[in-house]
């Protein structure tokens, strides 16, 4: 859901960076409290995710390093630091430490009821905020300067969106793990983008796709043994994306290809027709028959196009001879005129 905003803001990889950056937070929270209480750990993850995000911002605005460098940098550095802390924790005499690395790859099966409740609450919160600030988010998304001139505090809204993205990511970590979180954020939104141009539809569809891939993924992973949930969910989501890329009616590859071919056919048809027109023009009777042979040297001509012309009643065939009908003649001359007009 929030992924829609990330995709549209060209911050897709932010999810990846944040999910990695959350790791040291988890480790530090554990080091400080010494307990594996999921709420504290999540809080730690949230804080370090936010630090990571704002550092990325700082790097992009204050130096000439580009966003991709900043993302990659923060991602790997935070993650490495998190690993250092994790291995450091493993050497500590504390029985509680096992299972911290569950956060790395995620395991939906390890979720307990309280976690689910927490997620539900946060999701609800996200929804409410989203509805409350819908207009502001939308304006900020598509025209930041305009939002600024209208007197919205763009910085606050910006921070609000980012914080919610971070929150969503941190929560999702438990389910699908660090590596695959970015796909969970992106895939539904990217799929939804193909079906609609409206933001509200897109957010709705993204939520739907996300939920579906979650359900399907879990079902598949439960049906087979030895299959962790996270990767399966991601693959299901990827399939959704592929499907959307190919079959979406307006932007999809399949329909685009069909349109492309159709346009080309039309063009060839017109070419043949205008060629015929030029021949017919030299005769007094426009329906004067000609042999098909003279068309053979012409590039745009195929049997198929000729048949189509006959179907459209532009041309009549008589044995090896063809002749232009009155209708065909008029169509071509108009076609020619239209083109002339366009050229002007």
């Amino acid at each position: 859901m929030l992924g829609s905003f990330a995709v549209l803001r060209k911050q897709s990889l932010l999810g990846d960076a944040i999910s990695h950056a959350a790791l040291p937070g988890i480790a530090i929270a554990f080091l400080l409290t010494g307990a594996k209480e999921s709420n504290t750990l999540l809080l730690g993850a949230l804080v370090s995710g936010l630090i990571g995000t704002f550092w990325i911002r700082g790097i992009i605005t204050k130096t000439h390093l580009k966003s991709d460098t900043a993302l990659g940098l923060i991602l790997s550095l935070f993650f490495g630091f998190g690993m250092l802390l994790l291995t450091f924790i493993q050497k500590q005499p504390n029985a509680n430490q096992a299972g911290l690395d569950k956060y790395l790859f995620g395991q939906a099966a390890t979720l307990v009821e309280s976690d689910v409740w927490l997620m539900a609450i946060v999701t609800g919160l996200c929804l409410i905020v989203l509805l409350l600030f819908w207009k502001e988010f939308k304006i900020l998304l598509f025209d930041k300067d305009y939002a600024n001139t209208l007197g919205f505090n763009t910085k606050t809204i910006d921070i609000l969106i980012t914080s919610f993205i971070v929150l969503a990511i941190v929560l999702g970590l438990q389910t699908v793990g660090v590596v695959l979180m970015s796909a969970m954020l992106l895939a539904p939104a990217a799929a939804a983008r193909q079906w609609t141009n409206s933001l509200s539809m897109m957010v709705f569809l993204a939520a739907l796709f996300g939920a579906f891939s979650g359900v399907f993924g879990t079902a598949i992973s439960a049906a087979q043994n030895n299959l962790s949930t996270g990767p399966v969910i991601v693959i299901v989501a990827s399939v959704f994306v592929m499907f959307s890329f190919i079959f979406s009616p307006n932007r999809g590859l399949l329909f685009r290809q069909i349109r492309f071919i159709k346009n080309r056919r039309d063009l060839e048809l017109h070419k043949t027709l205008s060629f015929m027109f030029n021949i017919a023009k030299t005769h007094e009777n426009i329906s004067h028959p000609h042999t098909i042979k003279i068309l053979n040297n012409f590039q745009g001509y195929t049997k198929g196009t000729l048949k189509k012309l006959v179907d459209k009643n532009y041309v009549t065939l008589n044995g090896n001879m063809w002749s232009l009908t009155q209708e065909g003649f008029e169509t071509v001359s108009n076609l020619y005129n239209q083109q002339l007009k366009k050229d002007e």
Partner: peptide, 8 residues
């Protein structure tokens, strides 16, 4: 966009 493509 490119970054989305990478992320997918």
């Amino acid at each position: 966009k490119e970054d989305t493509a990478i992320g997918l």
